[in-house]
Design a protein around this nucleic acid. Structure first.
Lengths: 206, 206
DNA sequence: GCCTGTGAAGCTATTCACAGCT
DNA sequence: AGCTGTGAATAGCTTCACAGGC
């Protein structure tokens, strides 16, 4: 694609877009970098730097056009084809995440869940079918799923990741408190609540 | 306390400790930096650099003593007194998080939940009492809670954060897709699943 | 020989500061 | 005057590479 945009910049662009949606719904048509930056919790310089990645043109008089900027960011962030997501581990957390994303973005949907426990499989979870984990590779490949979410206990995370890799998943969101070993080219986003809470505890008393 | 340790280092120390616990349970007594680093998914140089913060002494022949290192990291990360956590927003995600942390660390427990919905309040959620949000400030102050977790919808997140600040909470883990505005000295850890998933989608097709 | 601890180098990310535009 | 876009400066983080120890 374009000239490499950093991880962090992509994350913030997603954030800016969300703020822009809110502004747009309030009827705001134009916004200055300092306003948008403050809503997003970043510095104006950071915002302008990030926007260089989407090279939308702001004007010194009116700032940025809200709708135009949403479209520019979207054309970078959104795929032309929908991207499908599979979730492994339909425990409390897994089910909550399915519910969280259910019916949000049509371009980015969790369309299959997997679990080892036969009590959980072959049922619908917030509209999403849960398959036995033995069918993981075949279901993921058939449905064209490219993103996996792991919400299993830590002990199983690496084994599940390997199944996902065998099914040629390209990105993994990992909620298990375990470091995943994956080959280059597969992107892993760790959502480690245990570590985050410990960090928080440390800085909260600092 | 000591001479400032960075955010990222603290997070990795928590990770190393977890890996060390596993090694310890397998009966491993000593470990070299390259082994521990590989289990944690970092480079050996990074690991050694991070360990400078706890200034434990490794020996060239035996590497690090597993138990000793766990203790050194713990004396940095753990408070002498238990630290209590309150969670606001007892929906699917909130309840899953309560379950996730239930009965893990005695020093770091979620001891109160809050919700606006009277159907959810005054009940136990995985052993944790749920109070009406009107009682938030008083309950948090009485119980000495210093860390808040926000699992409300985005629209309510800032208002909830302000209640938590009024109750003198020092750290907030924010699951709501909204940028929180807090005064200096309060530490916020954003766990923004929407942004993370969009990042993942971007890099998965890169 | 092979490890640790660490100064120094290299790299990435953020912020500054200002030219250019209206 | 006040904004954007961006080169240059700064700060922060990671990796290199090697001295020192057994």
């Amino acid at each position: 694609m374009k000239k490499d945009i950093s991880d962090k910049t992509i994350g913030r662009l997603s954030l800016y877009r969300r703020v822009l949606y809110e502004l747009s719904q309030k009827g705001v048509r134009n916004v200055f970098s300092h306003q948008l930056a403050s809503s997003a919790g970043v510095t104006p310089a950071q915002l302008r730097r990030d926007l260089m990645a989407v090279s939308n043109i702001g004007s010194p008089q009116h700032g940025y056009n809200v709708q135009g900027l949403i479209e520019s960011i979207s054309s970078l962030l959104d795929a032309s084809q929908p991207q499908f997501v599979g979730l492994v581990g339909a425990g409390n957390l897994g089910r909550a995440i399915i519910a969280y994303f259910a019916g949000r973005r049509p371009k980015l949907q969790i369309i299959a869940a997997f679990d080892r426990d036969p009590d959980k499989t072959n049922r619908l979870i917030h509209g999403c079918k849960c398959y036995p984990v033995e069918e993981l590779v075949s279901v993921i490949m058939e449905k064209g799923i490219t993103i996996g979410i792991i919400t299993t206990p830590a002990e199983e995370a690496q084994a599940v990741a390997e199944l996902l890799l065998r099914a040629e998943v390209k990105g993994i969101m990992n909620f298990a408190p375990a470091a995943l070993h994956v080959p280059q080219g597969v992107y892993v986003e760790n959502m480690d609540m245990t570590t985050s809470l410990e960090k928080l505890a440390y800085f909260a008393r600092k």
